[in-house]
Design a protein around this nucleic acid. Structure first.
Lengths: 340, 340
DNA sequence: ATGAAAGCGCTAACAT
DNA sequence: ATGTTAGCGCTTTCAT
């Protein structure tokens, strides 16, 4: 079946291509009778306007690129869903780039903006630097960011306060009587890792507790590294009583290590993660974690981003700091007896 | 910054646009010196070829649409990752459509093929009917399917044998001494549900056990429905000793219900899921499940699909039935004492 | 209200 | 080996 084009429709309806185009788009300056004729011809010819031609002519694609580290994780999947649903509602499409934290792949993906395959890119990946994103923007491309704040007048962002989030987790653990609290970080170069570690440090300082380097280990945001990091920690710190993992996947790794080592959770060790992964309510024990409105962040940001791209004198608010919420569940809901 | 176009480069390099185009593409019939000149001009002008123009001219977009039910599930996320990585390696892009099983959204997404935004669509969603997909193909669009077999000469597919898979799970449970085995299905209209239920039935028949309708409940492939379905089952069948859930998410819901009801797993109740979700190794008890090579299926299929789209007399194999593998873990690794 | 025609930026057939 | 030119299918300005 060969696609029909606008000129075929025009011929069929005995009008000019301009008229068909008008019917296809605004259709304001078309008489009802002509409009009806054209619509009928479109229907009859089974006509669908060619997107490439439209894109070329309009210099827009109504497509947004989305860069994520790993779509196979609750955090990113929820954000992507939010973006995708809102984008679709606004007649936009999204092209996904799953980078596995390979900076090279992220950089390569930017070429889709340069060759105008996408109208703009949303970075949900924590690895690329703010500087790279700002530079990208300076070169005339549209960018938006989820998960952190980029100081740039043209870059919309939505994020939670990781430092505050980490402090709240720590405060909860401190209130439960814990004093030797370990921290399992994510990738060393992920911004979330930095910020959550910073919150960990500030909480220690507030509580006038010393920072013990042995109580910190790097993971990679995955279960296996959480498991291994915990084993290293436990080896070095037999007296620790709590673990704060920078995300839920790593906390699950800690759970597994604890079962193998016969460490009761939360009786002997409290565990807290971050992200409110959908499984955390279904583990045993249920996992204390921090809920972030991921889906909503994605939806909100893409909406503002699209607004901005279509409106040169966009003056609306661009920076969204959303609240996260500590969910205390079984894995940390146990008060240490300080007298013991 | 205004984009430079091919004619700007031509002017800069003092050659014709055709020569620039040749350098950009095959570059066979270009002398080394001209080529160098052009390359230098491209570099100097910071030129990137416009994708829309190229797409319009070549009538191809090197973009594939991917329809999934829910990217926020291990099964789909792994498949999508496989598709995305292989597609990128072949210089293709993917546009995702997360349908939440809304058939309407799937149908709408097909318009991207009609208006030539994508070169073809891979359906990973279990809801759309084989007939709809075949019809789509008959209208001249390229389609491929993951997760089941569509009888059509032009539709590549990769899938596992759901009936066999379900029989193997049942055989395992039967061997462990179970006789009253419940089945929690997924969406009533998902093909995976049908087929796994069929396997469940055939296994019962093979074992000369009666089919008891009260032992089957529908879920929706999510944790919450798994939880609720199990509660209904338990109410009706206090004597059941095993549950086969059509996917892991629902099995996690069963775990939660068991903890609340004080049912020891696997001591009193065996539980088996499907998908080998990444968390199943980290739950307590670890969950018996069925591993399918999701990532590999996605990668393999998209590779063949791209081959086929670019080669009219493609004669390569189109149907890939891949093996799944039962993973017996703690949740079902307990032999009932038949004498009790 | 409708039509004619000029491009959007690129590729490829044809000419030299 | 290199250049000229006709479109790909659409939108939009400018006429009428």
């Amino acid at each position: 079946m060969k696609d029909s084009k606008i000129i075929d429709v025009a011929r069929e309806a005995q009008v000019s291509v301009a008229t068909v185009s008008r019917v296809l788009n605004d259709s304001r300056h078309v008489s009802p009778s002509t409009k009806a004729k054209v619509l009928k011809a479109i229907e009859y010819m089974n006509f669908t306007p060619n997107a490439s031609a439209k894109n070329l002519r309009s210099q827009k694609t109504r497509t947004i690129g989305v860069v994520v580290s790993d779509i196979h994780s609750s955090y990113f999947a929820e954000i992507v869903k939010g973006i995708e649903n809102m984008a679709n509602a606004l007649k936009y499409k999204i092209i996904i780039c799953d980078t596995q934290n390979e900076k090279e792949k992220e950089l390569e993906f930017m070429s889709l903006a340069m060759n105008r395959t996408v109208d703009g890119i949303i970075f949900v990946s924590p690895v690329i630097s703010n500087r790279d994103i700002a530079a990208f923007c300076e070169r005339g491309y549209s960018a938006a960011v989820i998960g952190r704040h980029v100081e740039h007048p043209d870059i919309p962002c939505a994020y939670t306060d990781n430092v505050k989030l980490a402090r709240e987790v720590m405060q909860h653990l401190l209130e439960m009587g814990h004093r030797r609290i370990a921290f399992i970080s994510g990738y060393a170069d992920a911004i979330d890792s930095y910020e959550r570690l910073e919150g960990y440090l500030k909480a220690l300082r507030d509580a006038e507790l010393p920072f013990v380097p042995d109580l910190v280990e790097n993971g990679d945001f995955n279960e296996t590294e959480g498991y291994l990091a915990f084993k290293r920690l436990w080896e070095k710190n037999p007296d620790m009583t709590a673990v704060f993992a920078a995300n839920d996947e790593m906390a699950l790794g800690v759970f597994k290590a604890c079962r193998e080592l016969g460490i009761p959770v939360p009786g002997r060790l409290a565990v807290v993660g971050v992200d409110n992964n959908r499984v955390t309510k279904y583990t045993s024990p249920t996992l204390s974690t921090v809920d972030q409105p991921n889906y909503a962040m994605g939806a909100l940001l893409v909406e503002k981003f699209i607004d901005q791209m279509n409106d040169n004198d966009f003056i609306d608010k661009r920076v969204f700091k959303v609240d996260s919420k500590l969910k205390i569940r079984e894995s940390s809901d146990f008060r240490l007896n300080r007298e013991t």
